[in-house]
Design a protein around this nucleic acid. Structure first.
Length: 300
DNA sequence: CATGGTCAAGTGGCA
DNA sequence: TGCCACTTGACCATG
């Protein structure tokens, strides 16, 4: 079992200059400076990715979620056309080799704007663009084309007709490139009206993609399954030889005894690890304090 | 140099 | 109707 954290390393983020893979810019700046400047930021982001991977190795952390912001404004240009492309390619290749050599699992979680179930054509088109860029970056890293290196999304929409939406997911899945289809996973939601693990089984049966079980979300959208039932149903969707991933976080409102905070909000730290009921999984911990929150649980 | 207002994208839920 | 939360705070104009 490996514990992972998402996108940001707080420790390195406090160094000067700070180590981060999230350099970006507002639209106005992108329009003024163009993809060339985006490439400069991407190059720095990629260099810092290597620093974070080294930190992870030195601190016994073998699971990390890559930021979706590593290439700012990636939807507006082709990564291959950046003037820094060859340098970026070399660096990412080095990052991927380093991760593989040290058994660091890298995954990603593209944002809520990715809506493969949308009835609106331009939304699906934008989704395909963003997911394709994630697949490209994973290919540049030389990561496996399997859900070991997953690109994980939510459905992100119901439109009052879940069955139709699920169908659109499966139809639009076929429009994705192999770099994405081979890595894509889908995660249960944190709203009762949305998709439980049970709902997502329809997608798994039609496309074969695995389901990521989120413990925290499950509390708000059970699909009438117990935690153990939902977890183990999700686990059945993973291919042989690839350890399933689960997401774990604790409720901020419980940590702070504050009823005003939405129960869905994540806490800074975690008090415990989830019950895996004896199953072997990798656990992505989603907490505000990032790597700091999992250090107490990491065995060196 | 610190700080606060503002920031690409889609959707659902809530005041 | 408008804000917030979600993958993740970070950018940048102003003082």
């Amino acid at each position: 079992m490996n514990l992972g954290y998402a996108c940001i390393n707080m420790t390195l983020g406090e160094e000067k200059p700070k180590v981060t893979t999230n350099r970006s810019m507002i639209k106005k700046t992108f329009l003024a400076k163009g993809p060339e400047y985006a490439g400069e930021l991407a190059l720095l982001n990629c260099r810092d990715l290597f620093e974070i991977l080294k930190w992870n190795k030195e601190n016994g952390i073998k699971f990390f979620r890559l930021s979706s912001g590593i290439f700012p404004w990636a939807s507006e240009y082709d990564i291959e056309d950046l003037p820094q492309y060859h340098r970026i390619k070399t660096i990412l290749s080095g990052c991927g080799n380093y991760a593989k050599k040290n058994n660091i699992r890298i995954t990603s979680h593209p944002g809520p704007f990715n809506v493969l179930v949308s009835p609106r054509e331009h939304v699906v088109k934008n989704t395909i663009t963003d997911l394709t860029n994630h697949g490209k970056v994973f290919d540049l890293l030389g990561l496996d084309r399997t859900p070991y290196n997953k690109i994980n999304i939510h459905c992100n929409g119901v439109y009052g007709d879940k069955a139709s939406a699920l169908n659109r997911f499966c139809e639009n899945f076929e429009l994705l490139p192999e770099s994405v289809k081979t890595r894509l996973t889908v995660e249960n939601d944190d709203k009762a009206s949305m998709y439980s693990v049970k709902d997502l089984m329809y997608i798994h049966k039609r496309t074969g993609i695995p389901i990521v079980f989120d413990y925290h979300h499950h509390q708000f959208c059970t699909g009438d399954l117990s935690e153990q039932e939902a977890l183990e149903l999700a686990i059945t969707t993973w291919p042989d030889g690839i350890k399933p991933v689960v997401h774990y976080s604790e409720s901020k409102s419980i940590h702070e005894s504050n009823g005003k905070v939405k129960p869905q909000a994540h806490s800074d730290y975690i008090n415990e690890l989830p019950n895996t009921y004896g199953n072997s999984v990798d656990i992505m911990v989603e907490s505000k304090a990032k790597e700091l929150s999992l250090l107490p649980f990491v065995i060196h």
